[in-house]
Design a protein around this nucleic acid. Structure first.
Lengths: 195, 195, 195, 195
DNA sequence: TATGAATGAGCCTTCATTCAT
DNA sequence: TATGAATGAAGGCTCATTCAT
């Protein structure tokens, strides 16, 4: 990796958690300057403007989270284990796997009516998550773990939506009580469809 | 209503959808100035600072939404109808009942790590929604509509989280396809527990 | 006294110490509003603008101080006592007879290059003080208390300048040590010219 | 000198006389912008805020004045000459050696109850002036110029306080008449203690 | 590539003042 | 006389961005 690319990557890594925590609008280039200990000019050598940096930070946050998630899931031996791992992975909203919480929720709600580029990135992230879950379910159906009449795509949506909603509650309430309800409910639904 | 209170209310009404759409950080006092056609100084006659106005706007958004919701629900004759009405009320994320989408999601994710006052307001709003649903379920159990073994509080959480998650997807994708999955799933769950 | 004049006087009394403490530029109409618990509009009923109020406050400060000074001096039986009383009256710069310290010094240095009206008021106040001292000295010469060759006007200036300089030191240092030097020096000079 | 430091110094030089003339509160950042022909943002590259710039301006005013004073005094051959030079240096309040007049008087009275940092700077400046005079007197005593029973510290205070008081009168009256009384009185006091 | 000085638009807020009631 | 809502200019300051070095 060339020196330039290295610095660029360094900036992204420092910027990503700040953007995910404070939001794009509330994060200033000075915030990132301070976090990286780099000069103001240096930021603009590597990123055309704040928008470009913010996009890179969004991508980075999603990638980091995705990698961690895949690493966790990859250890699973069965499809059910995969689903349970997914659920457990996101089960602690108070101390989430990514600083600042779920980037899909954070950037999604901010980008919503103001930033079509980021909005589309989040849209893809959401689709990716559902596809991941859907594939696990389909795999489980294929290998005889799950009820063959189960609608994989629909239940993927059920898992994803409940986990996001649970995440919101966790972060607002400061505890995981309701998230526990969510995970328990989801797991028993999975059990019901296990053979 | 005194003149001052009238203007104050007028400002809140104009400001609320802007805050809910752009977010607190990205909304400037000038934005509200423009929307109200009032002078900049006038805003500060009625609100100590932007923070106070933002809080009032958050309250207003939640109140407006709550009132609309209650008005819809109050027409229901049975507990099941109440739950279905709640679900239907929030079933269109693309054209939501409140300009800018769900304020719990919008302000919640923004306030998260930056604004404890707003965060607590959202926390209360979330609790209120779940309680509303829980009460409908309990009422249905009491009057023999629903399975008496149903856990009211837990299913209230299931409804709330899935609806919020579905809302997120709707707004990011620009369509209500996955929201349809959510509402259909929830309604069939309710049917399963109806006697 | 008519109601209007009463309120006007009330405002002046509340405003005077604020102006003398913070200075004219740093005192806002809101400061006086708060101190008087009167409405903003009310201030402008009694005073055309801030400048007029500030002038009234300057006058008031000088008058209050002058009255206190005269009251103290009037108790003196001899000319020497009068001079000593003057010196003692101003001998405590840390806890001065007027809140905020000497108005001649305060308003004088502020008005200097910016406010000719106030500047002239202070100029008259300074002249008045020197005349007061000069008259006491002349009286003492006339009644045989003081050396008839003493230059009354010049020593009045000596007293006034040293007291003002001493006042400045007191207020900056937070103690009256150097002021003590000033008063002791002045008193022994007076003794030297006493018969 | 680096470019940044150069600009910083340039701003201070332009700002110092403005602050000394109008006072800190009455001087706006825009005033300095105009005087320097620099952009508003540029001021904040070199000074954290107005307070920091004001402090730098206070320091600068005191330093410039001190340097001029020392340059004048350094030409003196005898202790008496030093004292006379000090007196002459400050003898023209109408056209003072520093634009805006004596910074100890100007900033001192303004800082008094509102700005502890500036207040302490002035306090040190006052002490410095008295020490300077005291040292000249002590030198004169040591080399046999002055009466060995003379109290150096006390007479330093007499000179300083009378000169400051005289300065105030000069600036308010617009003439140096009373200052002339002050300087003549001080010089004859010095003569009286000369051997 | 990296720096940090420079910019000017825009931020939130306070100001003195006016005016309908 | 008294109120307080309304105003718009100006306040201090931060912002994203540019550019010479």
């Amino acid at each position: 990796m060339a020196k330039g690319e290295e610095t660029r990557q360094f900036i992204i890594e420092k910027a990503a958690p700040i953007f995910n925590t404070k939001g794009i609008a509330a994060t200033s280039m000075s915030d990132i300057m301070e976090a990286t200990k780099l000069s103001k000019g240096s930021m603009y050598v590597h990123f055309e403007n704040k928008e470009v940096l913010a996009c890179a930070a969004v991508d980075h946050n999603m990638k980091i989270l995705g990698d961690k998630l895949l690493a966790a899931i990859s250890k699973s031996k069965t499809a059910k284990e995969e689903l349970f791992t997914y659920i457990d992975f996101f089960s602690n909203g108070v101390n989430p796997p990514l600083t600042g919480g779920c980037p899909l929720l954070n950037f999604g709600t901010e980008a919503d009516d103001t930033n079509p580029v980021v909005k589309e990135k989040i849209n893809q992230g959401i689709k990716y998550n559902q596809k991941l879950l859907e594939n696990s379910i389909k795999k489980g159906i294929a290998n005889g773990e799950f009820n063959p009449n189960w609608n994989a795509a629909d239940f993927a949506t059920v898992i994803f939506t409940m986990m996001e909603g649970g995440h919101l509650i966790s972060r607002m309430s400061g505890n995981n009580d309701k998230m526990k309800v969510v995970t328990t409910t989801l797991k028993s639904m999975i059990e019901e469809n296990s053979l």
